[in-house]
Design a protein around this nucleic acid. Structure first.
Ligand SMILES: Nc1ncnc2c1ncn2[C@@H]1O[C@H](COP(=O)(O)OP(=O)(O)OP(=O)(O)O)[C@@H](O)[C@H]1O
Length: 649
DNA sequence: ACTTCTTCGCTTTTT
DNA sequence: GCGAAGAAGT
């Protein structure tokens, strides 16, 4: 059926029609790579491939949802919903869930986000029994080390070598790092929890040690497709390669000029070497940009040509010339903010744009503050994407952790946090004592609490508090899991038993917090409505793995007409009629980290980031900078970003 | 154990 | 110039 692919140009069609063998689409921004992948998936199914045999890996879960919707339009939602589509992390988790026994886990796992992982590391490092200084081994740094190792598939046994090789000139003692990493893994497993890195690393080792399991998934996933392949890291590379064997029906799509996740271990050589990595690769080049005006495409090309390490691809457009891009020099960040606001008002009042057509991009999340107050003062509706997540607020966190407890009472880290929410004369010291006892006797914290009278240093009085806490809160919530209740009922019961609303009322700013909490309940209700078959585990996973992005599907209602603010990283793969890129100054964009770096390639990654920013725009692109910028109360004069100089040269 | 005061450091980006 | 983490007080 040729008409299915009528939305593609001849080159795109070639890729979408090549159903067998390795396929590489290496092409510039806005050339329709994602679109081609979408249509190809529909084509596969149309040609009789069972959707359950297709694995499509996307960079965000939001991108997966968009793609699924589009495929549903093409071939119907029943089939579209059966495709295994999502991020490496969510697909990895799905595989782990089906194989918990093989890896020594029990049902109902917790997913640890960075904050959870960091508190576990903190509790390990500050454990009085092992003398590790928190100053010398800061938990946040330890977490980034461990994630880095996991991205490289390094486990505690190989950590020593890794440290010697990569961190020889630091003060870290490799043996200490191994000790911390080992303990972290041990406790995480005891708590029946996965961190983000596990979601890719553990399936890889599962496959390695269980050839039967690997075979099962290789057979299942006859077709593997990966979007944004330039930003895959070692673990992801190995994971997808393993699954694509032996049939090698793998299609990867990406743009080396848009590789911006090096900090997460991504390596764009994965895409540049793809042709050598697989045999008989079918290569498709897409050169025509469908997204942007000529002036935007030309500007982006003029910038990225300054990078030395790149494949070098053509990119042109048949779209209109469009308005010249606007480079705005302002005296200071106040004036910069005012300029942007004024321009937004002009676009909306006189040029026929809507607020929702407009997006402001910046290098780091904190930059949102520079513009937010100006938007507020002119009552321009806006939404900040990413960064401080709604679900990370204390009141949301509390309730989500309480729900998590009713799901996975083995998670002692979580129990520790929960005890802290209640000011019931049980504090950090008591929790530490209990945890130590749990550790030494190799039992769970819940069990330790039951026999707390045996714990050294817990007196009669303290034991009484502990027993009360168990009886009033923890045990009744733990019971829920065994009762086969509906998700809605569980949520209600947890709310009632925990008296979370009372806790919120006792906090400062309780009015705001109560409102947030009610909003949380509303969100949860919406999610349950949309996914009727969700279990509690799936609900919590949905919230964790979609953090930052719209967990709740975007309102298509009136109050959705808002301008969006986000980092350039978050804008990957998206497009907007109007884009403002703010703060184009040396040490802001490019970031000071890259400017001061010994590594010359660091600036190239910043330039790619700018390239991504510029190429998000369809019609209008504004680049702004301030000659003076306030920061930390002080302030200083700035130098215009080299990226602007390069455009003007 | 909980509350209030003082100091510090902030230098990225996300699943 | 602000929020988190530590120190000191109750
Ligand atoms: N053949 C085509 N006909 C009409 N529109 C197209 C065609 N190809 C792509 N487009 C449109 O161009 C825009 C960019 O496409 P898409 O997002 O797939 O590009 P991409 O290469 O994945 O971009 P990027 O790498 O910048 O994220 C989309 O709005 C898409 O619908």
């Amino acid at each position: 059926m040729e008409s299915l692919l009528s939305g593609l140009n001849p080159e795109q069609k070639k890729a979408a029609n090549r159903l067998l063998g390795p396929v590489l689409v290496l092409a510039g921004a806005g050339s329709g790579k994602t679109r081609t992948l979408t249509y190809r998936t529909a084509n596969l199914i149309d040609k009789g491939v069972n959707p359950e045999n297709i694995l499509t890996l996307t960079f965000t879960n939001k991108a997966a949802n968009n793609m699924k919707e589009k495929i549903a339009e093409l071939i119907g939602s029943e089939k579209a919903n059966k495709i295994w589509m999502g991020t490496f992390h969510s697909i990895g988790l799905r595989i782990l869930r089906a194989n918990l026994n093989s890896i020594g886990y029990r049902n109902n796992v917790s997913i640890y986000d960075s904050a959870d992982s960091e508190s576990l590391l903190k509790s390990i490092i500050t454990d009085p029994r092992i003398e590790i200084s928190k100053k010398e081994y800061p938990p946040a740094r330890m977490l980034s080390l461990i994630s880095e190792m996991k991205n490289e598939l390094i486990r505690p046994d190989e950590a020593k070598q890794f440290m010697k090789k990569n961190y020889a000139q630091t003060t870290y003692d490799p043996r200490r790092i191994v000790q911390i990493y080992k303990k972290y893994e041990e406790l995480k497993k005891k708590y029946n929890a996965f961190d983000f890195g596990d979601l890719i690393l553990m399936p890889v080792y599962l496959f390695k040690y269980n050839p039967k399991v690997l075979k099962f998934y290789q057979k299942k996933f006859q077709y593997v497709q990966i979007d944004e392949y330039q930003d895959s890291n070692t673990a992801q590379y190995v994971f997808s390669k393993m699954l694509s064997k032996p049939q090698n029906n793998i299609m990867v799509v990406g743009d080396d000029d848009q590789a911006i996740y090096g900090f997460r271990g991504a390596d764009f050589r994965n895409i540049l070497n793809f042709s050598e990595d697989f045999e008989d690769v079918f290569e498709v080049k897409l050169e025509k940009n469908y997204r942007s005006t000529k002036s935007i495409v030309n500007t982006a090309n003029d910038l990225i040509k300054h990078n030395k390490v790149r494949k070098g691809k053509k990119s042109y457009t048949d779209n209109e010339e469009g308005k010249d891009i606007k480079i705005a020099s302002t005296a200071n960040n106040e004036k910069e903010g005012k300029f942007v606001v004024k321009e937004i008002q002009n676009l909306v009042n006189n040029k026929g744009f809507k607020y929702k057509d407009i997006t402001i991009l910046y290098r780091v999340n904190a930059q949102s503050l520079y513009i937010e107050k100006h938007l507020k003062s002119k009552s321009i509706p806006y939404e900040i994407i990413g960064a401080a997540n709604f679900f990370d607020r204390k009141e949301c966190q509390m309730f989500l952790n309480l729900l998590k407890f009713s799901l996975n009472p083995l998670d002692d880290l979580n129990i520790g946090l929960i005890i802290g929410y209640y000011k019931n004369n049980l504090g950090a010291t008591t929790i530490k004592k209990l945890k130590q006892y749990s550790d030494e006797n190799n039992i769970g914290l819940l069990e330790t609490m039951r026999e707390a009278h045996k714990v050294n240093g817990i007196g009669k009085k303290r034991n009484k508090y502990i027993q009360n806490f168990l009886e009033n809160y923890l045990l009744p919530m733990e019971e829920l899991r065994k009762e086969d209740l509906s998700l809605k009922t569980i949520i209600n019961e947890v709310k009632n038993i925990s008296q979370v609303e009372r806790l919120i009322n006792q906090m400062k700013n309780s009015d705001d917090r109560r409102e947030n909490f009610n909003q949380l309940l509303g969100f949860i209700e919406e999610i349950i409505e949309k996914h009727e078959d969700f279990s509690l585990e799936e609900l919590l996973e949905h919230i964790k793995l979609n953090a930052g992005q719209s967990v709740i599907d975007e309102d298509k209602s009136e109050d959705d007409n808002k301008i969006k603010l986000m980092t350039v990283h978050s804008s990957k793969g998206l497009e907007f009629p109007v884009v403002f890129v703010m703060g184009l100054e040396e040490k802001t964009f490019p970031h000071s980290f890259a400017v001061n770096s010994e590594n010359k390639l660091a600036i190239e990654e910043e330039r790619r980031l700018a390239y991504v920013a510029f190429t998000r725009a369809e019609k209008r692109l504004y680049l702004t900078y301030a000659k003076y910028r306030t920061k930390y109360g002080g302030g200083s004069f700035t130098t215009r970003s080299r990226f602007i100089d390069e455009l003007l040269a």
